[in-house]
Each structure stands twice: as C-alpha cells, then as structure tokens.
C-alpha cells in the first residue's frame, strides 16, 4: 500500500470509529434539518381559518379560492364570540341570500383579505345570477417566483453548514491530536512528504463531504420533507469538493494554531456559527440589512450556500458556479498560505 492510501485509510478508520465525530458530522446537521424543516414547513400552508354557519353556492365558491379554511359551527352567536376571543379572524353566516360577515378589528391585513375575498365571491355570484356579460375581464395566471419553500433553501443551507463544520473540525482535530500524540513527529521520521500527509487528509474530508451530501439529500427528498431537486443538481458535486477544500484549509489553519482539542473545538465554533448565520444557512438573507449582506459576501459559506441553492433547487446551470468557485478558490489560497506559516510538526 502506498503511504498516501494507508494514511487515508488510517484517518478514515479513526474518524468512523469515533462515535462523537459521527454524531456531529451526520446526525446533528440532520437534526437541524428536521427541526427547521418542521418549524418553517408548516408556515407555507397558511390558509386563513374562519368560522362559518350555513351553506350555499357562495360558500362553495369561497372554498374553491383556496385562501380560507372553513370551521363549521352551529350558531352565528358562537362564531362571533370566537372572533371576539381572537380565536378566528372572521366569521361568516349564510342564511339563503343573506350573507353576514363579522371580522376582528385587531388584524387588519387578515380581516381585509377575508373581506375582499368574500365580496369578490359575492359579486361574482351576483353577476352570474344577473346573466349579463362582465364589463371588465380579468386574466390571471400563476408565475413561478424565486422565493422558495422552506425545505428548498434549508437543505442546501444546512448541508453547506454541515460540511463546513465537519471539514473544519475533522481536519483541525486530526492535526491537533496527531501533533499532541507525536504521530506527526513519527511521520516526519519516515520518508513521507508533507504533501502526502495533507492530501490524504483532504481526501478524507472530501469523502466525508460527499457522504454527508448523499445522506442529506436522501433524507430531504423523503415525502415528509419533499425536497425537489433541479435538473442539473449534479453540478453540486464540483461545488461540494471546492467548498470542502476551502473549509479544509481553515481546518488546517485552526489545527496549526490550536494546541489542544478543546482549543480547536472552541475556535471552530467561533468561526462556524456566526458564519452560518451571516451566510443565510438557516434563513434567507434577502430581508437582512444591506451592510450585513455586504459582510456576508466575504464569507466562503455564503458563496457555497448561494451556489448550492442555485444548482440544487433553482435549476441554474454551470454559469451559477463561476462566482462561488472563484471566491472559494481565492479564499483557499489565502488561508492555506496563512496555515503554512503557522504549521508545526510538534509542540515546541
């Protein structure tokens, strides 16, 4: 076996036999996916619930709009009480041709929506009953917009965050542990080059990243979460590799500076967590203040994130990879240079 292969195998085994590492690499990001998926997932079906009394063509037409959700109650008084209590934004009663609507004063936007919807349905029914052609016609069609359902931006975001964490942690901890236990020194005493040691760790990092991605996307595509992959999703693969390269370089830098596993863990957290929030991992950045968006432009996770969203779910092509690739590679060069300044084979 070549030194490169056996070092890679040794690192792979060391990693996969460590339960804590497996948890932080695979299970914790998945937990985040599940938690955020459930929190944000329910908000996308936000029909307005209203209390209704009676039945008729108006209610049928109203139900077909898909905007309101009916809760049938026995009497209008009960329904009005529910509005007063703030349980529902509006109550509607249909007795033959008489339609009564009561809405809560507190939530004007919701009440306005309900009022507008109901009056348009009522007008429509009246117009149909009169038998006259409409004076004005409205042609409306649905347009696919770029704002995504929760799972569509959560999956690429949390995946990017998960691979950033594991790439930085994994490589930093290997370096610190091997230096502390003098394994690096022992390797230094064998005819193995620095490049072999570094590149075998990089291989392990990339391998872990790919496994994470497969697991993640597989879970997100289950019906519970319902992730829809775009046609050119496989463009994510080169992006994953370049992304793990740049986080690997941060990991080597952290592993060169930190003297203990505890220090490496602390430094990694200080880097990864703020970066994750600033990069739009857990929620989209479009509502964030401009200066924050500018700051996030210098973060590698931001660009990995953007690239992943573009190719995985927005259906963009190779052109979407250009900026992320350029930024990530430039970042890698700078950080790798810094790491090479700080790197040492042994604790002095």
């Amino acid at each position: 076996m070549t030194a490169f292969r056996s070092l890679s195998v040794a690192m792979f085994k060391g990693f996969f036999r460590e339960r804590v590492a497996l948890f932080f690499t695979f299970l914790m990001p998945l937990m985040f996916l599940v938690i955020f998926g459930l929190i944000f997932g329910s908000s996308s079906s936000n029909k307005t619930k209203i209390d209704v009394v009676g039945d008729g063509p108006v209610l049928t037409a109203l139900n077909n709009t898909g905007i309101v959700d009916f809760q049938h109650v026995d009497s209008f008084d009960k329904a009005i009480a529910a509005v007063k209590n703030g349980d529902v934004p509006a109550a509607i009663s249909v007795q033959g041709n008489k339609i009564e609507l009561r809405y809560a004063a507190s939530d004007r936007v919701q009440a306005g929506t309900v009022q507008a919807v109901i009056s348009s349905v009522v007008d429509h029914v009246n117009l149909a009953a009169s038998g006259k052609p409409p004076a004005v016609t409205l042609d409306s069609q649905q347009v696919e917009d770029s704002s995504l359902t929760a799972i569509q931006f959560l999956t690429p975001g949390i995946l990017s965050w998960g691979l950033a964490t594991s790439a930085i942690f994994g490589s930093a901890l290997t370096l610190v542990n091997w230096r502390k236990k003098q394994v690096l020194r022992r390797i230094r005493l064998s005819p193995v080059s620095t490049g072999t040691v570094i590149s075998s760790r990089l291989l392990v990092t990339i391998g872990t990243t790919v496994l994470q991605a497969i697991l993640f996307i597989a879970v997100a595509m289950t019906p519970v979460f319902g992730l829809q992959l775009a046609g050119q999703w496989w463009l994510a693969l080169p992006l994953l590799i370049i992304g793990s390269l740049s986080f690997f370089s941060i990991g080597v830098l952290v592993g060169s500076i930190a003297k203990s596993e505890e220090a490496a863990t602390g430094i990694t957290n200080v880097i990864v967590l703020p970066m994750a929030f600033l990069s739009g991992t857990f929620f989209p950045l479009q509502n964030a203040p401009q200066w924050l968006q500018t700051v996030s432009e210098v973060l590698p996770l931001r660009h990995l994130n953007d690239g992943m969203v573009d190719v995985l779910v927005r259906g963009k092509g190779v052109e979407a990879l250009v900026t992320p690739t350029a930024v990530l590679l430039a970042f890698t060069v700078v950080v790798a240079f810094a790491a090479s300044r700080f790197f040492s084979w042994e604790d002095s």
Binding site: M1, T2, A3, R5, S6, L7, V9, A10, K13, G14, R17, E18, N177, K181, Q182, V183, R185, R186, I187, S190, P191, V192
Partner: peptide, 24 residues
Amino acid sequence: LQASSFFEKLTAREQLETFASLYG
C-alpha cells in the same frame, strides 16, 4: 518516541501496517 504515538482507534495490526506503508 517517549509518548506512545499511535494512530487513533486503530488495532495493533493496523498500526503496524500503517507505519510499514509509510516506508513503502
């Protein structure tokens, strides 16, 4: 070396095989 420098989580045989392969 003074500290026993082993690869984490590897068995005795795996340690030896890894070290041997460093020398080809």
